[in-house]
Simulated assay, not measured.
Amino acid sequence: MPAASPATASEQQADLQQLGARLRDRRKALGVTAVACAEAAGVSRVTLHRIEMGNPSVTIGAYVNVAAALGLHLVVPVLDLPAAEPVTIAVGDYPGLRSLAWQTDAGTTITETEALNLYERGWRHLDHETLTDHEKAFIQHLADAYSNGRLLV
């Protein structure tokens, strides 16, 4: 008897159902029968059906095996945080950034990734000797947070 489905929030249940539907669509597009797919994945036909329905009680390993049997690589970004509002800063808070974004008002807000792009594109135009310690620390923060600790300059 299959395990009882754990309590699953509607958003996660919808994700599982979408995953199951994509796997089913891929199987059908390849012209693979449910029996052949289940056999190739090492699961029962009933388990394959439960996967294609997005049942949360099926192990992640079974989902991965079915995906692999269909020539797919299942990627589960478990550690991603829910999308949040991007951090913004005012261009005028950093004199070097202000010089790179000369065409904008000092109060213009941009995201940190936009600031990183401006620094990287305009790096050779910056007067590095006039950068404040605060701005240098900010540039290092941007590199650490968005570019594996390195500026692409």
Rank of each mutant, 00 (worst) to 15 (best):
L131A: 07
A84G: 06
E135Y: 09
R50F: 06
L118V: 03
T88S: 10
A9G: 14
T113P: 00
D15H: 10
E85F: 03
R26N: 05
A38R: 03
V58D: 06
T109D: 01
R150Y: 09
V64T: 13
H134W: 01
T47V: 15
H49Y: 10
L131N: 02
A21Q: 14
S99Q: 12
T108A: 11
L16T: 02
E52D: 06
T88K: 15
D127I: 04
H125E: 11
P6I: 10
W123D: 07
T113D: 04
G122T: 03
W102A: 14
K136I: 11
T130N: 05
V87M: 08
E52T: 03
A106P: 01
Y119R: 04
R24G: 00
R121D: 12
H49A: 14
P56E: 08
A41V: 04
Q17F: 02
A68W: 04
K136T: 07
T130I: 08
R98T: 08
L118D: 01
Q13Y: 10
R26K: 15
A4C: 01
L131D: 06
H73T: 14
D25A: 15
Q140D: 13
V64K: 14
Q103W: 10
V35A: 11
I51W: 09
L23N: 02
G42L: 07
S10V: 12
G107A: 14
E11N: 11
G20H: 08
I139S: 04
